[in-house]
Design a protein around this nucleic acid. Structure first.
Lengths: 251, 251
DNA sequence: CTGCGATGTTTCATATTATGGCACGAAGCG
DNA sequence: CGCTTCGTGCCATAATATGAAACATCGCAG
């Protein structure tokens, strides 16, 4: 999880970024008034910021309705970010090996705020290069990778929001239960989710460390819960730990 | 091509965005000093903006070197932009049909500044869903889609930079030659590139219009120049025009 | 046709906010 | 060890962003 407290003297930039983040799958288009109200900004200010973003192609408008939406420039930047990810390049072959050997789907994820973002993905059997979920995010507290982060990245756990909202009946929502699992994870070396993120889905995960011991990302292997009994999870967990170890430049 | 002149009173936001855009494939990581010099901003100002961007996860830092790079938050936003693109959803089936019928690769592109950005892509034969180029950009003056835009979007041509830099020996670099082609394109209804973008690659393209007659994007079909003689280009051109017509909600 | 209520847009005086010169501490290098 | 170059913090200045209010459009209903 990244630190960096909000700095002084760049509020306009911050507000602009926050405006961009207000868009979601459910609300891909918003009117000026909506955006203004939702972000608590003055209508004029909102308008000015949107204009600036539009001039840089990060914001676009529906020519028919005049509604604001995310622009094509963001796509370009996003792809740029993806392409220049050194981590992704380095881990890619490992991901492929994991998917091949286990037959399940392997992912590389990084934290973004309270979520884990899928940076890369290799599906197990069937579809080979399918990367349909790259760029999507899942709540940190319900994913195996998120738990791994929380357990192994210093100070990460403290920053976790107290609101652990349930995604399934099995999702952990009590801080104490969570804390207990974290202890297990630290001892075991890898984390897991069983039906906590989505019913019928289970995964194991561990973190990747850089040369300085810093946590750079998390690896996971996941599939249908039926194929993921305790024994299989343990086996995949150790495979994962081995892979993560070999990714550390110190070894 | 989008209008929207740079507004007043949002310079901080503009500067922040411009900082993000300074990163490229060649320079995925930059130091504070480099960024500061390259963007002409004061070192302190640059630092403050980067901090703000980092706190929103749009900027990340290499923990070993301290160098700045694009952050994971940008990926999330980019994917968001892609997913919420109504145009893409609408055109997707048409793209598939074009690729299937022609056997060549079909793309949907939109303008971003002086480039055309690939919003969606369906490959012809072999690899079916391969979308390896989504999000990449090509100079407007050397692509078939770019030429289509320049010919059919009002005021677009005037905004074209005077600097037409060559990508191959065949790239048009003289404004007069270009102007002449534009006339042809307008009459013909579709544009083409033959070895102008990359040697051995040819494509035809036309624009998609919205209900108000506004240009929303451009479609292209492209492949190896050998398979793309004049007769084939004419045939594919009319196929393309037909597809574009059917995409217009008025018909 | 007319008035109402909503939208997006522009203007402008105000003071909040961003700015950049300067200085400091820490690495990296000769 | 001194020199350079890096990222970072401080602070007075003024340039910049801000938000109230007014304007311009549009769709809708009386």
């Amino acid at each position: 999880m990244n630190d960096a407290r909000p700095p002084q003297g760049a509020q306009a930039a911050l507000r602009a970024v926050r405006l961009l983040k207000r868009f979601s799958i459910e609300r891909p288009e918003m009117s000026l008034a909506e955006l203004s109200k939702a972000s608590g900004l003055n209508k004029t200010t909102t308008h000015r910021l949107l204009r600036a973003l539009q001039s840089e192609a990060l914001i676009d408008r529906n020519p028919a309705t005049g509604a604001y939406c995310l622009g094509a420039g963001l796509m370009a930047l996003g792809v740029q970010a993806l392409a220049s990810s050194d981590l992704r390049r380095r881990v890619r072959p490992v991901l492929r090996a994991l998917a091949r050997d286990s037959g399940e789907t392997a992912t590389l994820e990084v934290p973004v705020e309270d979520s884990m973002l899928i940076l890369d993905e290799v599906a197990g059997r069937h579809v080979v290069g399918a990367a349909g979920n790259i760029g999507t995010r899942w709540p940190m507290h319900a994913t195996s990778t998120g738990k791994a982060y929380l357990a192994f990245d210093d100070g990460c756990l403290e920053r976790l929001s107290d609101k652990l909202h349930p995604l399934t009946p099995k999702t952990l929502t009590q801080r104490e239960d969570f804390q207990a699992q974290i202890v297990d994870i630290r001892r075991r070396g890898f984390a897991m989710t069983v039906d906590e993120l989505e019913d019928g889905f289970a995964a194991v995960a561990t973190v990747i460390r850089g040369p300085l011991g810093d946590v750079q990302g998390a690896l996971s292997i996941g599939g249908p819960t039926q194929r993921m009994d305790a024994a299989r999870r343990a086996e995949l967990g150790s495979v994962l730990c081995h892979a993560a170890m070999r990714l550390n430049p110190r070894f």
